[in-house]
Amino acid sequence: MIAIIGLVIGVAVGLILKPDVPIGLEPYLPIAVVAALDAVFGALRAFLDGLFDDKVFVVSFISNVFIAALIVFLGDKLGVGAQLSTGVIVVLGIRIFANVAAIRRHIFHA
């Protein structure tokens, strides 16, 4: 319940404050958002499996975002930033689909 309230508060704050993103960080924000989404779905699945641990969630959330941003940063330095961004998005997308499938099995028995 508190987690859902936190998400709602975050969306509301983002809508109301309209924070500015520094130009240097702009390419990393979409990747970071997708990585965080992956961590959230993984946590939800672990919770339904009875394995949820808030420390693991925090570490996985932060490390997901950090590593995704790092990969994109390296890609930019190596001159393949666009391709690596696409690759990260694809991998994270596959993971999100797999997690959502497990969550679906838990909730809908299908």
């Binding site: 309230i5 936190g6 998400l7 508060i9 975050g10 924000l29 965080a36 808030d54 969630f57 925090v58």
Partner: peptide, 26 residues
């Protein structure tokens, strides 16, 4: 809700802010 949900709520709030901001930028 237990103690662990507070941490999750904070991280989800961060995700919400980032997601909305990214949608606005895009």
């Amino acid at each position: 809700p237990g103690r662990g949900q507070v941490v999750a709520a904070v991280l989800l709030a961060v995700l919400g802010i980032a997601g909305v901001t990214q949608v606005r930028i895009a």
